[in-house]
Amino acid sequence: MVWTKIKRVFRSGFVGFWRNGVVSAASILVMTVTLAVIGTLLLASAYLTSSLDTLKSKVDISVSFKTTAPESDILSLKNTLGTLPEIKEIQYISRDQELADFRDRHKDNALLVQSLDEVGNPFGARLNVMAKDPSQYESIAKFLDPNSGDSSLNRDIIDQVTYKKDIVDRLMVLISASRKVGFAISMILIFMSILVTFNTVSLAIYTSREEISVMRLVGASDNYVSGPFIVEGVISGIISAFISIALLYPLALWVKSTTVGVYGGINMMAYYIDNFVEIFLVLVIAGILLGVISSILAVRRYL
């Protein structure tokens, strides 16, 4: 019996959805806008989070050596550093490598390359030190400081210790602030679009208020009356989720192509593809919830 009722509620919901085409289309349109907003904000937030992670991983200490520093001393310093437990990775870039890199970067600038030929190799060798955790950079930097009292290391060969902490810290503050502001704006946007959806569904069900009262008068229980409307809401939600995930694809492409000059381009496309299943599930669940809740709220007024 329960199965028969469920089957009838679903069938009635599907038929109602189809026969009230215009009303269903209006609900789908509004729900699609809401879900597209949610999807865009999800993508943007995923992008910001990943930018933050990328930035964190870019924090390193660059130790430049004097041009006169013998390679053997540098390598021995590298070995000593390698024994420190905080250090994850040390990369050695020789003078020749540094010069080759520079030439490669500026191969179009004939004047610069020519002047290099005249002065010889002005670059010192370099060590890039990566810590296991960003908080450990400060102690590593102190350890390498030529002015530190410790004499067990030959620090005279060190020209400069560059530590990008400040700039990275600032960037991280900026990103986390923009995430907070973004979150607040997202919440307001989502809240507004949910309200609009509720209103549209209410209006759609308002047109059926007479039917609802007749259904009740002929002996249908409240659940049996509201069931098909909830099914209609679910169908609208699922269709809207499909449309909005499809809309996010050209959006991600557009964002990528228009921001190609900024920071290597905001590559939302990658997040869209990598997290497609998750985003889609979130949109489908949000669509279903939106449909169910707004239908229940709207039908309840006439029960």
């Binding site: 019996m1 028969t4 009722k5 259904m215 002929v218 002996g219 249908a220 229980s221 049996y224």
Partner: peptide, 10 residues
């Protein structure tokens, strides 16, 4: 619909 609401069989 009236019959369905009353739980009658198909």
């Amino acid at each position: 619909f009236t019959m369905e609401a009353a739980g009658r069989a198909d």
